[in-house]
Design a protein around this nucleic acid. Structure first.
Length: 420
RNA sequence: GUGGGUGUAGCUCAGUUGGUUAGAGUGCCGGGUUGUGGCCCCGGAGGCCGAGGGUUCAAGUCCCUUCACUCACCCCA
């Protein structure tokens, strides 16, 4: 019989890795909470139209990466390739603007893009996603960027590179795009085939090209920052100024253009080495027109997404978490096994991680098991201890052993373990 | 979608110019201590050598096909 395997680009997250996931998610919840963000959970499937309208019909995501299916009634549904669209949909649908002028939300969960997998890129991957609706002030940009950096550092990451840029707005970007097109047409023949194609499809993408011959041309191309309108320029200046005051290190990357159509003004990205070609752990930006475009109120928005797999891939080993056991019960013989089992059940019910082996193996074998399970203590007893009503409790780290009386054993153990 | 690399034990990988019964490390189980873990020593289990076809007296090894994984491009978290 042929083995059934996981879908290409999908991954099982195995027990040895889940503690890291839980830790990162916990830190996110704590830190985002202190910045006033509240968790929202939205479906992983939406009507296809939502993503087409938000992300942009001509983006790679919509053109070739979405998992889209016809439902039984022929309606087209899509597994979400990102979370922002769904959150905006929910924001509009539940009329959150009426409840409060500024809404701070975050969510976490799987996203789906049907790309060719490689290091740091999967077809199902996980993001922690943050959105702030209803404020267009630069303070919002700074708040969100600061929170992102603070979060990443709190997980144990270091040597992060924050890059920021301004993409202009509806008023000033068209002039810039035109200037880029004009410039590129001047040296079209020296560009790589991909970039020649981009001139007509998506000229700003040329800035991302890694081909060397293109780089030198791009280096002399017009800069978005020279084309910003007064409003965008002032906004960007304030963002930089606050970041400086807060001692947040950043670099301005005037060639950073993000892949989704809806971004305006501030765009940012956090990179890390040691990640292979996909070195971007988090990215985001401002999308002031988007909520209105999706049929909601004309309010501003800004947000970011963090790739959890990429974050975990960068974590140093010292930050890795493990499963731990409070007490291993090493019971020798039938009577001890019986007492031990009852004890294990009661301890577990009291919230203590108690483990034991039910097959009455040798003590050595049971000790090895206790060690494997990272047990803090091991309770050791057989017929002799039961007759004398005195059991041995071994501290696995110090190797000290103390005698515990069989009477009131459950409470004694609970106290010892909880006092640690 | 395009290109490169790799498929041998649960995991990481050796395996010579084709040549008998396919190896190591690690992990797992057991023993060395008749009742005490990590280190050390000994033993054991565990392989349709990715799949299918071909060449050959003989294929893990050579050829073809196919599948999977992986890295990179495009693009992105």
């Amino acid at each position: 019989m042929e083995k059934i395997t996981v879908i290409k680009g999908f991954k099982d997250i195995l027990p040895e890795d889940t503690p890291d996931w839980c830790r990162v998610e916990l830190i996110a919840r704590q830190i985002f909470g202190s910045f006033g963000f509240r968790e929202i959970r939205v479906p992983i499937m939406e009507k296809t139209e939502l993503f087409k309208r938000s992300i942009g019909e001509t983006t790679d995501i919509v053109e070739k990466e979405m998992y889209t299916f016809a439902d039984r009634d022929e309606e087209l549904l899509t597994l979400r390739p990102e979370a922002t669209a769904s959150i905006i949909r929910a924001y509009i649908e539940h009329n959150m603007l009426s409840a409060e002028p500024v809404t701070r939300l975050f969510t976490m969960g799987p996203m789906f893009r049907r790309e060719r997998p490689q290091k740091g890129r999967f077809r199902q991957f996980h993001q922690i996603d943050v959105e702030l609706f209803g404020d267009d002030k630069p303070q919002s940009d700074v708040e969100v960027i600061l929170m992102l950096i603070h979060f990443l550092e709190s997980t144990g990451l270091s040597e992060l590179a924050l890059e920021i840029n301004s993409l202009g707005c509806k008023a000033c970007r068209p002039a810039f795009s035109q200037a880029v097109v004009n410039y590129l047409k001047g040296s079209e023949k020296e560009l790589c085939p991909d970039c020649q194609r981009r001139i007509t499809t998506n000229p700003l993408r040329v800035f991302d090209c890694k081909v060397e011959s293109c780089s030198s041309i791009i280096a002399r191309a017009p800069r978005i920052l020279d084309y910003l309108c007064t409003g965008c320029e002032e906004h960007f200046a304030e963002v930089k100024s606050y970041l400086d005051d807060l001692n947040v290190q950043y670099a301005i990357n005037p060639t950073m253009v993000r892949g989704l159509d809806y971004y305006v003004r501030t765009a940012f990205e956090v990179k890390s080495g040691s990640l292979g070609a996909q070195n971007s752990l988090a990215g985001g930006g401002r999308y002031d027109g988007l909520i209105g475009d999706l049929g909601g109120p004309e309010v501003a928005g800004i947000g970011f997404g963090v790739g959890i797999e990429r974050l975990l891939a960068c974590l140093p080993d010292t930050e890795k978490s493990k499963y731990k056991t409070d007490l291993f019960i090493a019971a020798l013989g039938q009577r001890a096994q019986k007492i031990g089992f009852m004890l294990a059940c009661q301890l577990r019910r009291a919230g203590i991680a108690a483990a034991m082996d039910y097959s009455d193996k040798s003590l050595k074998s049971q000790m090895k098991r206790a060690d494997k399970l990272n047990s803090s203590y091991t309770l050791i007893f057989g017929d002799k201890e039961i007759d004398e009503k005195r059991l041995e409790l071994r501290n696995m780290n110090t190797k000290n052993q103390q005698v515990l009386l069989l009477d009131n054993l459950l409470d004694t153990l609970i106290n010892i373990i909880k006092e640690r």
